[in-house]
Lab assay of single mutants.
Amino acid sequence: MDETGKELVLALYDYQEKSPREVTMKKGDILTLLNSTNKDWWKVEVNDRQGFVPAAYVKKL
Rank of each mutant, 00 (worst) to 15 (best):
K60V: 11
D2T: 14
K60P: 09
S36C: 11
K43I: 13
V58K: 00
G51W: 04
E45M: 12
A55G: 04
T32I: 15
K27H: 06
L12W: 04
T4D: 13
V58F: 05
N38W: 07
M1E: 13
N35W: 07
S36F: 07
K18R: 14
V46S: 15
L34R: 04
T32S: 08
A11T: 03
L31Y: 09
Q50P: 05
K26W: 11
E7G: 10
D40Y: 15
S19F: 06
K6W: 11
L33C: 07
F52H: 05
N35E: 13
V44Q: 00
K6M: 10
S36K: 07
K27C: 07
V53T: 02
Q16C: 11
K18T: 11
K27G: 05
Y13K: 12
V46R: 15
K43M: 15
A11Q: 01
I30R: 05
V23D: 00
L12V: 07
E3V: 14
P54W: 03
T4Y: 13
P54L: 04
L10I: 15
F52Q: 03
N47Q: 11
G5E: 13
G51D: 01
K26R: 13
R21C: 15
K39G: 09
A11K: 01
T4Q: 12
S36P: 05
G51A: 03
P54S: 02
T24D: 03
G28D: 05
N47S: 10
K6Q: 10
L61Y: 08
Y57L: 12
K6T: 12
K18H: 08
M25W: 02
L61P: 03
D2L: 14
V9A: 11
G28H: 05
V9Q: 00
V46N: 15
D14S: 08
A11P: 01
V23W: 05
E45P: 00
N47R: 13
K18P: 04
V44E: 00
K60T: 08
M1K: 13
V53C: 03
T32K: 12
K26M: 09
T4R: 10
T4G: 14
R49T: 06
Q16V: 13
N35K: 07
E17A: 15
S36W: 09
G28K: 02
L10T: 07
T24Q: 04
L31W: 03
E3R: 11
K59G: 08
K27Q: 08
V58P: 01
K6S: 09
S19K: 07
S36A: 12
T32W: 14
W42M: 03
P20V: 09
G51Y: 04
V23I: 15
E17C: 12
T32Y: 12
V44P: 00
W41R: 03
K27L: 05
V53Q: 00
Y57V: 05
T24N: 06
L8A: 06
L12Y: 04
V58Y: 01
K6I: 12
L34F: 04
N47G: 15
Y15P: 01
D14H: 06
D14N: 08
R21A: 12
M25H: 00
R21H: 12
D29W: 14
E22Q: 11
S19E: 08
T4P: 14
Y15W: 10
A55I: 03
L33E: 00
N38T: 06
V44M: 02
K27T: 07
K39L: 09
Y57T: 06
Y57E: 02
T4L: 13
D48P: 05
L10P: 00
N38C: 09
K39P: 15
Y57I: 06
M1H: 14
T4A: 13
M1W: 13
W42Y: 07
Q50A: 11
R21I: 12
M1I: 13
A11R: 01
A56W: 09
G5R: 14
L31P: 02
G28W: 06
N35Q: 10
M25Y: 02
K27V: 07
S19A: 08
G28E: 02
A11W: 02
G51Q: 01
K26V: 09
K43G: 05
K43A: 08
E45H: 06
V23R: 02
V46C: 11
G5D: 12
V44G: 00
A56S: 14
A11F: 01
D40N: 13
N35C: 11
G51C: 03
N35T: 07
E7D: 10
T37Y: 09
E22C: 07
E17D: 05
W42E: 01
S19N: 12
V23Q: 03
D2H: 14
W42L: 04
E17P: 14
L12A: 04
W42D: 00
M25V: 08
V53N: 01
L8G: 03
E22V: 05
R21K: 11
A11C: 12
G28S: 03
N35H: 07
D14K: 03
T32V: 15
R21M: 13
K43H: 10
E7Y: 11
N47F: 12
K18I: 07
N47H: 13
T4H: 12
G51N: 01
L31M: 14
D29I: 04
V44H: 00
Y13D: 06
D40A: 10
A55M: 05
D48T: 10
V44C: 05
K60F: 08
S36T: 09
K59R: 14
D48M: 10
D29M: 15
E17W: 06
L34M: 07
